[in-house]
């Protein structure tokens, strides 16, 4: 077998595309249309979150009792002033949707990052050091898991006082354990694989082994877990905000709007449907993009995907010619 028989395609360059030029990254992403759509939607949501005050046609907190529960513009009783209608206090649903993206994304991303990095770090240490360190860390995890999450959250918020940043810290505080358990389990089994022993025999220290040999091989399960957690956090944020312990009015979030709108669900579908759709679309986009990312960071999977793409292209040209 020789590597030189085949022309080396761009996708087989040694480093994952994220570290190469962004142009290469986009070119590779473009080949997977679903992932590209997901990525584009995520960029859109981020831009909307940043520029919400400029884009929103109304003040998201401005109430107008006279025009409450106006249906979306394209329905019979709709008004052109309110594209997606108004909620039970007469607030513009579209403007709230744009502003809500800010809190939802902020909370979701920062909780996953905060809880994820703390949980992963502890899991790495517990799994790699083993022995007493492992026992202590895992017993702490057990205590946290056994403690009712909502009660812990309520306690902490009551102590610190409700605000968006409090909610981020509190949600991270009650959600880091799952990362620790997952990572510790994988590290334990990975410690026994020969390539870790090989690294130790070569003289690598624990820091290098964790950083270069264990962490990169944890990417696929961690990506999957982080996405699932992201969805959970959006919903947890909604629950907390609904209880008045999270995002504080006049600020808003998608979760808060759903929570508020659900009492009127039977007479007005729009205040709850649009933020719900926004959450669903965001989570779907994250999923599509993350599954592409998972393949991209795995050298073997990446080459297989590239080969499949080439085979498809060849079939297409041959059927066109014939």
């Amino acid at each position: 077998m020789s590597a030189t028989d085949f022309p080396r395609p761009a996708a087989l360059r040694p480093r994952p595309a994220m570290l190469a030029a962004p142009a290469g990254f986009l070119a590779e992403l473009w080949k997977d249309k679903a992932a590209f759509a997901g990525f584009a939607f995520l960029i859109l949501v981020v831009l909307v979150a940043i520029f919400a005050p400029v884009l929103a046609p109304h003040d998201p907190a401005a109430q107008s009792v006279l025009s409450r529960l106006t249906p979306p513009a394209w329905t019979e009783r709709g008004s052109a002033a309110h594209l997606l209608g108004t909620d039970m206090l007469g607030r513009d649903v579209f403007s709230r949707l744009l502003h809500g993206a800010r809190a939802s994304l902020m909370v979701g991303v920062s909780v996953v990052l905060l809880a994820g990095s703390a949980g992963v770090a502890l899991g790495l240490v517990a799994g790699y050091r083993g022995g007493r360190t492992d026992t202590v860390i895992m017993r702490v995890v057990d205590v946290f898991v056994a403690f009712p999450g909502l009660l812990l959250t309520l306690l902490l918020v009551a102590m610190i006082g409700p605000s968006t940043s409090t909610m981020i810290v509190v949600l991270a505080f009650s959600n880091w354990m799952i990362y620790t358990r997952l990572v510790r389990g994988i590290v334990l089994s990975m410690r026994a694989t020969p390539f870790i022993e090989a690294a130790e025999v070569l003289g690598c220290g624990p820091g290098r082994i964790l950083r270069l040999h264990i962490l990169p091989n944890l990417i696929p399960p961690l990506l999957t877990l982080a996405i699932l957690e992201f969805t959970n956090i959006l919903l947890a944020e909604a629950a907390l905000s609904f209880l008045g312990l999270g995002v504080q009015p006049p600020d808003t979030s998608w979760g808060l709007d759903i929570a508020n709108g659900k009492n009127y669900m039977l007479i007005a579908w729009w205040p709850i449907t649009f933020p719900g759709l926004a959450i669903a679309a965001t989570v779907l986009s994250v999923n599509l993009f993350a599954s592409w990312l998972r393949v991209t960071t795995d050298p073997a999977e990446r080459e297989k995907r590239h080969a499949r793409g080439r085979a498809r292209a060849l079939r297409r040209t041959s059927s066109e010619n014939g």
């Binding site: 020969p194 390539f195 690294a199 025999v201 070569l202 003289g203 270069l212 990169p216 091989n217 795995d298």
Partner: peptide, 24 residues
């Protein structure tokens, strides 16, 4: 002991699992 690995090295039994799949 780590420094000793300059002089004593090892070749492993299973070439499929003894190389980190994410390194060139």
């Amino acid at each position: 002991r780590r420094a000793l690995s300059r002089d004593i090295q090892m070749v492993f039994q299973d070439p499929y699992t003894s190389l980190n799949p994410r390194m060139t």
